[in-house]
Design a protein around this nucleic acid. Structure first.
Lengths: 153, 153
DNA sequence: CAGATGTAGTTGTTTAAACAAATTGTTTCC
DNA sequence: GGAAACAATTTGTTTAAACAACTACATCTG
C-alpha cells in the first residue's frame, strides 16, 4: 500500500516531506516485525544488536563507549542494558586493566550459544524485506546512505 | 557515510540484511533529529503527529481508534497520550453522543495556534533530507512503499 | 428481550527510556 | 607534581512505553 493510503493523507507538501514521513512510517512497521521476532527468543532488539557486536569482537572484549559507537540505535543507557545481559549471563563485565575508567565487556559462551540459536531464524526476519529485488535493495541502501550524508559529516 | 562505515561492519550477509539494518540505522539517525526539533517546541513527536491528524479533521472530531489507524507510529497507549495533550489544552475530549463507547477528540484553538507556530519551521526539519534530489526522494518513497508490500496485505 | 459476542477505551502494573548530575580515573600544562 | 580539564561510565529520578486485564457499551442471534 502507498504511504498516502496507509496514513490516509491525500497529498504532501513536497517530495521531501513525503519521504521523511514514509521513512518513519516504514520504520515503525519494521520495528513491529522485529520486536515480535525478538520476543519469541526472549530478547530485545537492542540486546540482540549488542550481542552481535560483541560476537564480532570475540574473543576480544569491547568498552561500552565503542559498543555505543556502532550500535544501530544508540542507547543513552548502555550501563543498564549491559546489566540485563549480565543477568541473562550472556556477557561478562570487568574493569579494564590498562585504563581503569573503562570497562571490558565480553560475550560468554552462553551468549554465543544464544546467537547460534537465533542465526538460522534470521532469514525468516529478512523475508519481510524480500518483496524488493536484490537490485532494488541495493538501490534503497544507497539512497539511505546518501540521505544521511546531508548533515552527517 | 556508508552504512558499512557507520556501524563498522565490513560486509553483510546479503543485500536484504544490509537494507534492513540500514533502514533501522537511518531511522534512528532521523529520530534524533526529529526529537531535537520537537523538543525546542516542548512537544513530542507523537503529540505533534496526533495534533496534525486532528488539524486535518478539524472542525470535525475524531475517535482515538481512527487516530491510531493513521498515526505514523501507532501508540498502544493513546489514552494517556491524549491526556497529555489535554493537560496542555491543545485538545478536548468528550464522550461521543451517538455511540457512548466512543470518545470524541477535537483540536482546540490553542492547539491550532501551536501548530501555526511550528509550521514555518518545518522546512528546517526537512533540510535534513534535502541531500537527495527531488527525483531521488520520490524514488526512495516508492521503494519504501514496495518494501512494505511484502507482508502488508 | 436475554445472553453471548464483539468493540472502544481505560486503568494498573511492570519495565525500560531519557536526561542530568555525579563519580572515578586520566591527561595536560603550567 | 598539583590543579584544571577532560573522559568513561554510573546512578538517581522523572517520565513514558508495553502489555494485560478490565469496564462499559453496542450488536447480534435465537
Amino acid at each position: 500500500m502507498s504511504i498516502e493510503k496507509d496514513i490516509n493523507q491525500k497529498e504532501f507538501k513536497n517530495a521531501f516531506q513525503k519521504v521523511y514521513i514514509n521513512l518513519m512510517y516504514t520504520n515503525s512497521w519494521m520495528q513491529d516485525l522485529s520486536k515480535t521476532w525478538c520476543k519469541q527468543f526472549d530478547i530485545t532488539q537492542q540486546q540482540y544488536n549488542v550481542l552481535r557486536i560483541l560476537r564480532g569482537a570475540h574473543p576480544n572484549c569491547m568498552n561500552p563507549g565503542s559498543i555505543k559507537q556502532v550500535m544501530i540505535d544508540k542507547s543513552p543507557d548502555l550501563t543498564r542494558l549491559i546489566d540485563r545481559l549480565i543477568d541473562k549471563e550472556y556477557v561478562q563485565r570487568e574493569t579494564c586493566g590498562s585504563n581503569r575508567r573503562k570497562v571490558d565487556v565480553i560475550i560468554t559462551q552462553k551468549g554465543l550459544d544464544k546467537l547460534s540459536e537465533l542465526d538460522p531464524h534470521e532469514d525468516g526476519m529478512l523475508d519481510n524485506v524480500r518483496n524488493l529485488s536484490e537490485e532494488e535493495a541495493n538501490q534503497l541502501s544507497s539512497l539511505l546512505d546518501k540521505l544521511r550524508n546531508s548533515r552527517d559529516e
